Simulated scan of single mutants.
Amino acid sequence: MSESPVQAVILAAGEGRRLTPLTNRRPKPMLPVANKPLLDYIVEAVAAAGIDHLTLVVGYHQERIRNHFADGDEWGVTITYVEQPTQLGTGHAVLQAESAVDGPFVVLNGDRIIEPEIIERVAAAVKDGTHPVVTTTTVETPREYGVITTDGETVTNINEKPDGPIETNQINAGIYGLAPEFFETIRTTHTTGELTLTAALNEYAREAGGIERLTYTGQWLDVSNLWDLLRVNAGLIETTTTGNSETGRTHDRASVANDVVLADSARIGSNVTIGGNTAIGRNVTIESNAVVENAIVFPDTVIGAGTVIRDAVIASNVRLGPNVTITGPPDTMVIEDTVHHDIELGGVVGDNTTIGPSATLTTGAVVGDDVETDAAVTIDSRIAAGTTVRRG
């Protein structure tokens, strides 16, 4: 048994390319859901699990993370930062934390929301031994994750995003318990391309005959694609609010559903309807007669009068003109050559973009940063950053 307290290493260096344009100016772990960055929920869970020393592995736009969390005092923890300047894989990221770790530690992803209970279980398991611990959970789409092969209560292999037939919906949950000795396992792992943590675990499993497994059935919210933000936002609102947090300036003729998170500096006009599963950020203005439902609106955005937004994510400092419509039926989207069917995403608008009056975004339109559009245009595809969209 180790005498050192268990620490936590949180991997937060990634860019999140599948989430562009929202990650052009911020790292993926700093994307807001229910009006807080994803990473906030992970740090809170680690603190609630009784771990008070965290190492954050940062890289892409790391200043956003460092400025937000500082030394960790606001969360009741001590935070050390280490840098992964080039994203060379999760195994490489963990190696960057070696100098900051002096005992057993729990590794977590900075964009995957879990409950404190599983962190406590992993910490207890790794404190009592030198062998790695892997957590597993059940999902409806195992092919998108690391599918596990088991032998009783041990994991013998983790197959990342397999192409062939899948016989289980059990996946690697991405919460690991490791001892300092595992750094050498990572260093000596033979792999092509990125050095992933799962490759090192698979090598260990081959040599040792398996890895201890802990099964997890609690909340597990993962953000891989743009539409996942809406699902995670809804899940967090459902589990963390008992009524709307309406503290902004809201007109007495506005209608705000109970399952809404509303920043205290938001301004809501007359006859506005804010439907369920919606998060409205700081300094957002929603003008009269607008409708916003199942949406995330980042800070400092203005939504014009009569605009209708459903199933959408609107970034910061956006200007949506009057009578804009962002909505659409479930549709097919292609992300990095992968086809996703029946996606409920009306649209996404990047930072500092201006959408002209009476414009329509539909069927998962993704509008980049710094775009300007004419009035009454229709957008149903991806628009590159800096584009001017003319009518006709």
Score class of each variant (00 low, 15 high):
317 N>K: 12
258 N>R: 14
185 T>Q: 08
78 T>L: 07
228 D>G: 01
306 G>E: 06
59 G>S: 00
321 G>T: 04
298 F>K: 08
136 T>C: 11
8 A>I: 08
177 G>A: 12
370 D>N: 15
54 L>R: 04
144 E>G: 03
252 D>F: 12
127 K>R: 10
302 V>T: 15
88 L>C: 00
235 G>R: 00
243 G>D: 13
77 V>D: 08
256 V>R: 03
51 I>G: 07
82 V>F: 11
67 N>G: 07
83 E>W: 08
288 S>Y: 01
286 I>W: 03
196 T>I: 05
192 T>F: 00
54 L>I: 14
90 T>V: 07
163 D>F: 02
339 V>L: 09
45 A>Y: 15
188 T>Y: 15
156 T>L: 06
342 D>R: 04
130 T>P: 00
51 I>Q: 10
239 T>D: 12
366 V>M: 00
262 L>K: 10
173 A>Q: 09
373 T>P: 05
2 S>I: 06
249 R>C: 05
358 S>N: 15
232 V>M: 04
237 I>N: 06
244 N>D: 14
172 N>F: 14
248 G>R: 10
100 A>T: 04
98 E>D: 03
289 N>R: 08
226 L>M: 07
136 T>A: 15
360 T>A: 04
86 T>C: 03
249 R>I: 10
219 Q>S: 01
34 A>H: 00
204 Y>C: 00
379 I>F: 13
43 V>C: 09
330 P>C: 15
141 T>I: 02
307 T>M: 05
343 I>Q: 00
288 S>I: 00
221 L>T: 04
48 A>F: 03
279 A>Q: 08
92 H>M: 03
162 P>W: 06
87 Q>A: 15
37 P>H: 02
92 H>L: 01
234 A>W: 01
204 Y>F: 15
141 T>V: 07
58 V>S: 03
110 G>Q: 12
197 L>H: 04
9 V>I: 04
158 I>W: 01
149 T>P: 00
350 G>N: 08
175 I>W: 12
119 I>G: 05
194 E>F: 13
305 A>R: 10
378 T>F: 07
294 N>V: 06
357 P>E: 10
42 I>H: 07
10 I>D: 08
366 V>K: 06
186 I>N: 06
255 S>A: 04
300 D>C: 08
96 Q>V: 02
153 E>L: 05
313 V>D: 06
181 E>V: 06
219 Q>N: 01
287 E>H: 15
15 E>Q: 14
254 A>E: 01
70 A>E: 15
120 E>T: 08
87 Q>H: 14
78 T>N: 14
89 G>H: 10
198 T>G: 01
149 T>Y: 09
98 E>N: 05
316 S>D: 13
314 I>T: 04
334 V>G: 08
308 V>N: 03
186 I>A: 00
144 E>T: 04
242 T>A: 10
228 D>C: 00
192 T>G: 13
4 S>F: 08
123 A>M: 07
264 D>F: 13
194 E>Y: 13
247 T>A: 13
158 I>G: 05
236 L>G: 03
97 A>T: 03
87 Q>F: 13
215 T>Q: 11
372 E>H: 11
65 I>L: 12
184 E>Y: 02
255 S>L: 02
302 V>E: 14
309 I>L: 14
67 N>I: 02
257 A>H: 15
123 A>S: 12
105 F>Q: 07
138 T>C: 11
16 G>K: 02
18 R>H: 10
363 T>E: 12
326 I>D: 13
